[in-house]
């Protein structure tokens, strides 16, 4: 699971959960692999991200490197900055671990890189 995917996932569909975001992360296995860098794509996706959530997620799994705490001005034209964001969003993969609902503590396992967000009938 990439951190871009994590930035979108919520547990809001659970009964009694009002926001369900952001999901906490416990990680036992992380893999970093090279992905083609497309600066235009990264520049387009930045405004849609919840930046503090991305920052905290990267920090919590020890993959922050030197990502700035806030989005910098004029980021569209800063190739170095976009490269850092690219790395955190797309090159870091959580292989095994779990996501945690911030309101109920319900855990969603991540196995082989895939988070299992399925809910039981009595949780909906």
């Amino acid at each position: 699971m990439k951190l871009l995917t994590h930035n979108m996932l919520t547990s809001k569909c659970m009964k009694g959960v009002t926001v369900g975001y952001p999901l906490g992360i416990n990680v036992s296995d992380v893999r970093v692999s090279e992905v083609d860098f497309n600066p235009e794509f990264v520049a387009k996706i930045i405004p849609k991200l919840d930046w503090p959530v991305l920052y905290n997620a990267a920090e919590s799994i020890g993959q922050l490197e030197d990502l700035p705490k806030e989005v910098i001005d004029n980021f569209e034209n800063d190739r170095e900055f976009l490269k850092k964001v690219h790395h955190v969003l797309l090159e870091v993969d959580i292989i095994n671990g779990e996501l945690i609902c911030p309101e109920t503590g319900r855990k969603f396992p991540i196995n082989n890189g895939i988070p299992n967000m399925l809910l039981n009938e009595d949780e909906i």
Binding site: M1, G20, D36, M117, L118, I124
Partner: peptide, 19 residues
Amino acid sequence: LTNVDAVQCDVLKHLPNRF
């Protein structure tokens, strides 16, 4: 492939609105 991700969920019931 390193540019493909997957999420296990019920597409029709609980795909988060953030998507």
